[in-house]
Design a protein around this nucleic acid. Structure first.
Length: 247
DNA sequence: AGCCAGGGCGCTC
DNA sequence: GAGCGCCATGGC
């Protein structure tokens, strides 16, 4: 498996906010047990979590095949060369939603602080816990209201089922939640439900698309990305994001 | 002081 | 449907 673990865990995807680092190992608690991931000539993890880790890193994705499909031009070829082994991750949908509600008009270090403040015993608070908790110390700002109201609404939804519909239906459903617009929805669809055709458009992707492709308006960008990268647009997005940020 | 951060919402027109 | 100000907070 082609893998750069550091890039994958520290490039602004949900694991960047949820997992912690100890030396060159990453860890979090899963079902109350500490799970480590590290790279030692090969992907390693705490015994018993192999399946979980393979799912997190989307081990089934054939990166060579994906590289071939999205290598449409010099800009993205350069990004692939510079960030080879960066994988799109798949995290728990609710935890992913919490991450990207925290991300609204925020920066990566502070998103991480916010998300960590919403964790107990190595996991993100459940919707029920979010509703009961006093979040005034979490410094979420205006996002606290979004989070509380979304938690309330999630309770009346079959949240896992959102991923069982098609991309557009799932996106519409997610956008019913307070604080979830197109960008947050696409992030949750990509990193929480595994829809690789999702192409989240944030300020950095806008900069990348203008710089490399002279596309400025989100609607224009969305159409361009869909036609160009189709079912692998999410990978193209993740690489362009890394490239324009210089991660 | 002012701008920016993996934006969304509500209001205009 | 596009444009615009506002929304907390913290770092620079």
């Amino acid at each position: 498996m082609i893998l750069n673990l550091r890039l994958t865990m520290e490039s602004g995807q949900p694991p960047n906010f949820i997992w912690n680092k100890e030396g060159n190992k990453y860890f979090r608690y899963i079902d109350g047990e500490k799970c480590y991931i590290w790279y030692d000539n090969n992907l390693r993890c705490t015994e018993g979590f192999e399946e979980h880790v393979l799912k997190l890193l989307r081990a089934g994705d054939d990166l060579n095949k994906i590289y071939k499909k999205i290598s449409t031009d010099a800009a993205i070829k350069r990004a692939i060369k510079n960030y080879r082994g960066l994988r799109v991750t798949l995290s728990d949908p609710w935890e992913t939603l919490v991450c990207f509600i925290c991300s609204i008009n925020n920066n990566i270090p502070r998103i991480r602080k916010n998300v960590q403040s919403l964790m107990r015993e190595g996991r993100v608070l459940t919707p029920e816990e979010i509703l009961k908790a006093d979040l005034s110390k979490c410094s979420l700002g205006f996002r606290e209201k979004f989070l509380k109201e979304t938690a309330e609404l999630v309770l009346s939804h079959d949240f896992k089922k959102i991923g069982e519909t098609d991309y557009k239906t799932a996106k519409q459903t997610l956008m019913e939640f307070p604080g979830v617009g197109e960008k947050v929805a696409d992030c949750v669809l990509l990193y929480g439900y595994g829809f690789l055709q999702a192409f989240p458009i944030d300020v950095w992707i806008q900069r990348a698309m203008e710089k490399y492709y002279r596309k400025k308006k989100p609607a224009e960008i969305r159409k361009f990305a869909e036609e160009r990268w189709g079912s692998c647009a999410g990978y193209a997005n993740t690489y362009l994001y890394a490239a324009v940020r210089g991660i």
